[in-house]
Simulated assay, not measured.
Amino acid sequence: MSSPARAVASVTDTPHRLLEAAAEAFADRGFHATTTRDIASRAGLSPAGVYVHFSSKEELLYQLSREGHEVARDMLLAAASGAGSPTEALRAIMGRFATWHAEHFRVARIVQYEFANLTAEHRDAVLALRKQIDAVVRDVVTAGVASGEFTVDDVPDTTLALMSMAVDVARWYDPEIKRTPEAIGAAYADLGLRLVGAGQRRPT
């Protein structure tokens, strides 16, 4: 499995090392218990070296969260655009999203559990990205209802349920379990299609 910060994009080597170190520190100690000295030590830098690239540990948390959400959004957009039908699109979205949350469970946990520690401005920016992710899935569900492939009464609630299922993988996943991220993704793809009643046309 790749290291936690491999889930997000890097700009140069040092900022990437700092993001990776921050992800590991936040996962091990929590945001409040982590100091910039902890992060610098893990990255092989002096504490002052952190501030050359990031103004605070909160900015590190924000960058991890922002880039993680951008990766997830782009991944789901690619899954949806590469599918030939809403059913295929939803299967790809659920499979990839659940797999991603298993492969990058540490970053995903940080994003979910440390969200309240972002500044109001940074929370708003991340929430905007979450709305974009939600919109990708909602559009696929809406298209599936329109085509008759899905039987859904409440598209927003169903979209929320689908995303919640996949995100929750990060909470319980452990590398020691026997199921691989790919197997989890395949299972959640099937579960997602069951939730929208794929292939179960209503009687007229």
Results as ranks from 00 to 15, higher is better:
M94A: 14
S147Y: 08
L127A: 12
V155P: 09
S65G: 12
P86F: 13
M94V: 10
T142A: 15
G68H: 10
H104Q: 04
L61D: 02
V145W: 02
D74L: 12
S85D: 08
L90Q: 06
E58M: 00
S65Q: 07
A80R: 10
V137R: 01
H122D: 10
F150A: 03
D139R: 14
G82S: 15
A146Y: 11
R109N: 07
T99I: 08
E70I: 06
R73P: 08
L64H: 02
Q63S: 05
T87A: 13
V111D: 06
R123F: 04
S65V: 10
Q63W: 04
Q63L: 05
G82M: 13
V71W: 01
Q132A: 09
V71D: 00
W100Y: 13
A125H: 10
P86R: 13
E121Q: 13
E121W: 07
V107C: 03
V137N: 02
Y113M: 14
V111C: 05
D74K: 12
A143T: 07
S81E: 15
Q132S: 11
E58C: 00
E59T: 00
A72C: 07
N117M: 05
L60R: 00
Q132E: 12
A135L: 07
S55T: 08
G84H: 12
M75A: 10
S147W: 11
E70N: 06
A72W: 07
A135F: 06
Y62K: 00
A116R: 14
T87N: 05
A125R: 13
A79R: 09
A102T: 08
A143Y: 04
V137S: 06
F115G: 05
D139F: 11
D157F: 14
L77T: 14
R106Y: 11
R66A: 01
A72L: 11
A128P: 00
T99G: 12
G82N: 15
L129W: 07
D157S: 15
T87E: 13
K57V: 00
A128R: 08
Q132Y: 00
A98Q: 04
S147R: 12
D74F: 09
Q112I: 06
R96C: 08
Q112A: 10
H104N: 09
L76M: 15
F105A: 13
T99W: 13
R73K: 15
L127H: 11
L61G: 02
R66Y: 01
G84R: 14
A120R: 12
Y62G: 00
D134P: 02
Q132P: 02
F115T: 06
S81G: 10
R106I: 14
H101S: 03
F97N: 15
V152C: 13
A125L: 12
T119V: 01
K57F: 00
G95R: 07
P156F: 04
V155G: 09
A79I: 09
V141I: 06
R73D: 13
E59H: 00
T151S: 12
G148V: 04
R96P: 07
G95P: 03
F97H: 15
P86W: 13
F54V: 01
A80N: 09
D157P: 08
V126E: 01
V140P: 01
A78H: 11
I133S: 07
L64T: 01
L77C: 15
F97L: 14
